[in-house]
Design a protein around this nucleic acid. Structure first.
Lengths: 134, 134
DNA sequence: GTAGTTGCAAAGTCTTTGCACGACA
DNA sequence: TGTCGTGCAAAGACTTTGCAACTAC
């Protein structure tokens, strides 16, 4: 029994908000961003739609930073960098994704591997400058 | 002004609990585990000591699974597998860690890279069996 | 009209924190 | 004896959910 999916202006706006940026926003960022144009938007709706998009495979959660989930509308494999200072999440499109790793893990351990995440941690350029000034 | 660190039975027990297992426990797991032998243990103490060990570099948080932080007393670089079905966190000691990646990201993007995490997602053997039975 | 979607607020979960008391050095 | 560590409970932060009202089809 399939569920029929209906159009909703809020849903469209939420997806548009995620797609419009590369900062890998949190639920609250999306909410704050849309609130001016959609004064009656509720944070619960943002969460519900994020989970909807996640189930659909439209967006994915790429990290949890300071207790907040961070979302990405680019669901193709790519790596990320997280600044441990300011919490920025940055795409690393130039770093190749090793697609053979999943198979390697699968064969070595007998695990059913779906995908992998490669996340680098460190300090971003902006935070580095700030810390050098002080 | 250095802070003097004192001995505490609870702290020792908490670290021992983390070291005694390879399941990468959560704070609550440690609490439940120690409660019988330490009936007056408080969950707040577990959290405080986990953060203490993290600052000392004795343990590290290797993942957030279902909203819970998972800890590891093995702080040397190694990769992990997370079962998206049951939430198990498994060490992958046989999968080599590419130490050169950090430098590569650093040079390509001008970022200060401290370390990276490679996490595989999928279904563990146990969950796979269960799903095949039903 | 039926069923999906939302606002609102309450509840749920995990983690942190203030304060008084207890314990190590 | 001066801090450090802890229990307890309250508070904080993020996310989920129940319900009535609204809306797409």
């Amino acid at each position: 029994m399939e569920r029929t999916i209906r159009y909703s202006k809020k849903r469209e706006a939420i997806l548009e908000a995620i797609c419009s940026t590369d900062i890998h926003p949190s639920a609250d960022w999306i909410y704050q961003r849309l609130k001016p144009a959609h004064p009656d938007l509720s944070l619960g709706t943002v969460y519900r739609n994020l989970n909807f998009f996640r189930e659909q495979g439209t967006v994915q959660c790429v990290a949890v930073v300071n207790g907040q989930e961070r979302f990405d509308a680019n669901v193709r494999p790519h790596n990320h960098f997280i600044c441990d200072c300011c919490g920025a999440v940055i795409d690393l499109h130039q770093i190749p994704v090793d697609a053979g790793l999943d198979r390697q893990v699968s064969e070595t351990y007998g695990l059913q591997v779906h995908h992998h995440d490669l996340v680098f941690h460190g300090t971003c350029a902006e935070c580095r400058e700030k810390s050098q000034i002080s």
